[in-house]
């Protein structure tokens, strides 16, 4: 079992490495993609600077805590889109029959299919995440917790995309549902949860679980709480298992396709 996991990780690492080599062939595009993503994320902070010059507290968050929220949001997004880019276009992979080449290989279809490409701009998100952590104030425990939450949150976002994209096994055009779901997870991620009340707040911890990926990690980093920390881990394990179950259930309905295509 351990050997199987080790071999699978080796293949995923090789795929990511080869994709990175391809992206680095064009040095200028590679670097500008990363730099512009950092600048793009930084530009949003300007509005918060203006807001906090008028008010000390927004939704129970100080300015530094909002920065940390942005850091977690960028970090989770970065991890998800750098390592698992294809999970966010899994509907297309299913609809166009591109799963065929992974199905004839003796490896896990889902993991192979989602780790076959990278998004270089997501490296910019990850760099930006650590910049915000340094501004917030870095200590060793903070650094480790932050990294842990970025990885686990990235896996959580990827799992949500897998679940929504797997609907393509049953319904055509379900990529719209997946895109909307992924968009919602990002849109709510950078606002302090204190500004949301009632049903919206319930939704943010259930159907659109931004709370698990972003809000609870910020709380844990501001003031460590073992219960909240374990909730994030348990919820992630649950969503990962669900993602695998839904994908493999759907795979039995996979109908392939004979479109002409190339792996680029």
């Amino acid at each position: 079992m351990l050997m199987v996991v080790k071999n699978q990780l080796k293949i995923s690492w090789l795929s990511i490495k080869y994709a990175l080599i391809r992206e680095m062939l064009n040095k200028t595009t590679f670097l500008t993609n990363i730099i512009f993503m950092v600048l793009n994320n930084a530009s949003f902070i300007v509005q918060w600077i203006i807001l906090y010059s008028l008010k000390d507290n927004v939704g129970g968050y100080t300015f530094k805590q909002v920065l940390l929220l942005w850091g977690i949001a960028s970090g989770t997004y970065g991890v998800a889109h750098f390592f698992f880019k294809k999970a966010f276009s899994l509907s297309d992979t299913i609809n166009t029959g591109k799963l065929d080449s992974y199905l004839v290989q003796p490896k896990n279809v889902l993991i192979s299919a989602i780790t076959t490409d990278i998004d270089t701009s997501a490296l910019g998100d990850m760099i930006y995440a650590y910049i915000t952590l340094f501004i917030y104030g870095v200590t060793l425990p903070n650094f480790l917790l932050f990294t842990f939450f970025c990885i686990i949150g990235g896996i959580f976002l990827t799992s949500i995309s897998i679940i929504l994209s797997s609907l393509s096994f049953w319904f055509s055009k379900s990529d719209i549902i997946a895109d909307t779901g992924n968009g919602l997870m990002t849109n709510f991620a950078t606002y302090p949860d204190g500004i949301f009340k009632g049903i919206v707040k319930i939704l943010l911890f259930t159907l659109i679980p931004v709370g698990i990926v972003n809000y609870i990690p910020v709380r844990v980093m501001v003031s460590f709480n073992l219960g909240s920390f374990l909730i994030v881990i348990m919820a992630t394990i649950f969503i990962v298992i669900l993602a695998f179950l839904v994908f493999y259930k759907g795979l039995k309905k996979y109908s392939s396709s004979n479109l002409m295509m190339a792996k680029i």
Partner: peptide
């Protein structure tokens, strides 16, 4: 081999591709 679907990475050399396939099959 599916004539209509390529399995090779186009930016890599055949040699690197073959090594990748070797890793896939452990």
């Amino acid at each position: 081999v599916f004539g209509q679907k390529e399995q090779l990475w186009t930016h890599l050399t055949p040699y690197d591709n073959f090594k990748f396939f070797g890793a896939i099959y452990d």
